[in-house]
Amino acid sequence: MIGPAHYLGVSALLFGLGLYGVLTRRNAVAILMGIELMLNAANINFVAFTKFVDPTFVRGHVAALIVITLAACEAVVGLALVINAYRHLETVNVDQVNLMKG
């Protein structure tokens, strides 16, 4: 029988992977990919809790849909930024994008 712990375990693993990606990668695109993973880990949580706690009104699904939309927007803006940064600085390495450091 698959219980909530399984869902949450997968979710936590996925979040950990995403976090690891964000922390270790220097490539801006890879960081964005890590963020996507973490968002999806959250989505898994929402959906899993809906299944066990609120099957009637499925309010968690709604939240998951909003997060997906938000993730799409985030990817658009993030990638646009990365492309722009690359055009100006010829790099996507976040360590070298430090124009604003005083």
């Binding site: 976090l19 964000v22 922390l23 960081i31 976040v94 360590d95 430090n98 604003m100 450091k101």
Partner: peptide, 12 residues
């Protein structure tokens, strides 16, 4: 430091 991942590390 000015490096975002440091802050994220702290947050994490």
């Amino acid at each position: 430091t000015g490096r975002a991942y440091n802050y994220i590390l702290v947050a994490a």
